Simulated scan of single mutants.
Amino acid sequence: MATVVLLRHGRTTANASGMLAGRQAGVRLDGTGRTQAQRAGERLAAVGLAAVVSSPLERCRQTARAVLDQQAGSPPLLVERGITECDYGEWQGRPLRELAKEDLWKVVQAQPSAVQFPGGETMSQMQARAVAAVRRHDAEVEAEHGPGAVWVAVSHGDIIKSVLADALGMHLDLFQRVNVDPASISIVRYTAARPAVLATNTHAGDLGWLVPPPDASGDAAGDAVVGGGAGPDEPAGSQS
């Protein structure tokens, strides 16, 4: 079972100003976002990553580079259009305070599966292509690097929320219950039985437990342990 770390890009100038950036060019991390990306890279430094896969948009590639800069090895950086930002069409580049007055805003909040952005894609299309891309890369990473491999997908808020909703078995109409902050880390492990969501929207904490022990069996069945199991070993240096 490979493990995917879903990393949202750090805060951008558009996030800070309350603008829906969408796929606009030239949207970069601001000072806070660069610090956030650096912190995410520090958290992942203890994990030998098999690959880093990024949305093609600059804010994600900046975040991906901050992760790669702190890796001891040289995992490849792959660009994947399947996890690029939602195509918000005519909503792109507009202030959120204006969009909140539109009738479609209420549908986005209550019934995302029914949303078609004017001149853009549906939210169902967004989820389908994002989930397909993540699952495809996960299978490729496991096939090349083995069941203990860990890789990172650097993407966007709504994309990661939709992938998490799928992994949790939630209907897309419930995905607004999931929160994904800038530079937050969520973790999913796909198995033959079902996806397992190991973490969501985390901002701090050791991630060394993602490294499998040398004698890990790599059971592909992914059966849930009745009673919850023992969990990972304590990170080195955490015991007093």
Score class of each variant (00 low, 15 high):
175 F>M: 14
137 H>I: 11
63 T>V: 07
234 E>D: 11
177 R>P: 01
117 F>Y: 09
124 S>P: 01
154 V>W: 06
13 T>L: 06
137 H>Q: 15
182 P>D: 11
121 E>N: 15
18 G>I: 04
170 M>D: 04
104 L>V: 05
149 A>E: 01
97 R>N: 10
197 V>M: 05
168 L>R: 14
160 I>D: 04
141 V>M: 03
85 E>N: 09
16 A>R: 02
108 V>K: 09
154 V>G: 12
22 G>M: 13
188 V>P: 01
38 Q>W: 14
199 A>H: 01
74 S>E: 15
125 Q>T: 15
6 L>G: 07
218 G>T: 02
185 I>Q: 12
76 P>Q: 00
2 A>N: 04
230 A>Q: 12
210 L>A: 02
93 G>A: 10
157 G>L: 03
132 A>C: 04
111 Q>K: 15
51 A>V: 03
15 N>G: 08
79 V>F: 07
39 R>F: 04
70 Q>H: 03
113 S>T: 13
107 V>G: 12
66 A>V: 04
225 V>L: 14
144 E>D: 13
179 N>A: 15
43 R>Y: 10
11 R>V: 06
32 T>Y: 10
131 V>D: 06
76 P>V: 00
113 S>E: 12
180 V>S: 04
9 H>D: 05
10 G>Y: 13
24 Q>E: 08
165 A>N: 04
109 Q>R: 14
80 E>G: 07
21 A>Y: 07
6 L>A: 05
72 A>L: 14
8 R>Y: 12
164 L>F: 09
65 R>Q: 15
95 P>G: 02
55 S>T: 12
51 A>R: 08
184 S>A: 11
79 V>K: 08
224 A>M: 13
48 G>W: 00
221 A>H: 09
230 A>L: 13
217 S>I: 12
8 R>I: 13
104 L>A: 09
27 V>Q: 07
23 R>D: 01
60 C>Q: 07
194 R>T: 08
137 H>T: 07
144 E>P: 06
4 V>P: 03
86 C>D: 05
214 P>G: 02
153 A>L: 03
231 G>P: 10
13 T>N: 03
64 A>T: 02
103 D>K: 14
10 G>E: 08
187 I>E: 07
185 I>C: 12
52 V>W: 04
12 T>V: 11
215 D>Q: 10
153 A>W: 03
19 M>G: 01
175 F>T: 03
98 E>T: 09
84 T>F: 04
199 A>D: 05
206 D>G: 10
90 E>A: 13
229 G>P: 14
59 R>W: 10
194 R>I: 02
145 H>Y: 13
159 I>T: 13
